[in-house]
Amino acid sequence: MTENVSDLVLEGNAAVTLLQELFACDITVARTQCEACGSIEGVGSLRPYAAPMGAVLRCSHCDGILMRAAHTPHGRWLEMKGARYLRFQSSM
């Protein structure tokens, strides 16, 4: 059994919630390109870390950081310098 959880938490979803609060569209289906290695994937498939301090989303190919998000009592932070873009599909 994991030695280190006080409850099983949907890790990726803690990260998703932090990001989602900042976007008008569903962020999980947006596509993004890793600045470090060029691979393209859905934001929902990025590897999430660092909950509950924040969300650190890493490339599933090279582990480079694409995005970081944090929500503190003094405000919200979003950094996306590791992502070349975010692309939201328009509905048909």
Binding site: T2, L8, V9, L10, G12, E41, S45, P48, Y49
Partner: peptide, 15 residues
């Protein structure tokens, strides 16, 4: 890999 969708429980790096 684009056809594989994943959802994780618990902190990363845990046992």
């Amino acid at each position: 890999p684009l056809t594989i969708k994943t959802e994780r429980f618990g902190p990363s790096g845990g046992q």
